[in-house]
Design a protein around this nucleic acid. Structure first.
Lengths: 124, 124
DNA sequence: TGCACTGTACTAGTATCCTATAACACTATA
DNA sequence: TATAGTGTTATAGGATACTAGTACAGTGCA
């Protein structure tokens, strides 16, 4: 049996930052909170934030300038969306469908889902 | 910031067993694999399986008879479905919707989802 | 009774993640 | 130049999950 390696804290923090990049809270080129500041905000050790930032840097989502700070790269948004989409279609969607089938959910129960998916943007 | 506590191996094994109970592979009253057997099958330590079984017992999904084995309880299926539904509507569904919105997915991209949800059972 | 299966319990050890703390190096600015 | 902010690195320690190995106890059956 294969096990999913659980998401560590540093990954959850990375996800949180990526959310803010996608949503526009951290635009391309902007400076994200410093290691110390982020550590204090999140309530976590500096090393943990450092690891988070290193990982995001490895994924070309942020870049750093020593002594200045970390900055959102130009293609960060697209980069994140690509990664997220891959994970969504490879993992989350199949898992979601599996759950719906196993639980034998009715259309009635899934109404909130359909409502949310249809109303919000004008999809082509 | 609050963190999700990651799912340990023993929980993933529990989920796996619950899947088999819901799907009918382990019917009510049937004996599930012994601690040693399951450990060998899954490739994991006996203690880890023991912890899994203890947890499932605590949730009234299996019961044990010392020296004989662990058995699926009569209301195990319903019990699991209730727990899963709660988690689904509280956690998974909101997370799923959040992802779809963040990624700004089109109806086209979500087609496999709708296909899967509509075709399979005659929902009232 | 003896054997083979079962659950149960315990101790030690390992690996990993995260914390606590400190020190050093770089950059901008007054 | 001095200072305050920044990234960077390192060491030691705690907590937890899982492993390895062993031993004991209950049950069913030949």
């Amino acid at each position: 049996m294969e096990f999913k390696d659980p998401k560590g804290i540093f990954q959850q923090i990375a996800d949180n930052i990526c959310d803010k990049i996608i949503s526009g809270e951290f635009p391309a080129g902007s400076k994200i909170p410093s290691v110390r500041e982020q550590a204090a905000t999140v309530g976590v050790n500096q090393n943990t934030i450092m690891r988070t930032y290193m990982e995001l840097q490895r994924e070309n989502i942020i870049s750093n300038q020593r002594g200045i700070g970390f900055f959102v790269t130009d293609n960060a948004q697209q980069q994140i969306i690509n990664m997220r989409k891959k994970e969504f279609f490879d993992m989350q969607l199949p898992e979601f469908i599996k759950q719906v089938k196993l639980l034998n959910l009715t259309k009635e129960e899934l109404k909130p889902l359909f409502d949310q998916l249809n109303l919000n943007h004008e999809n082509k």
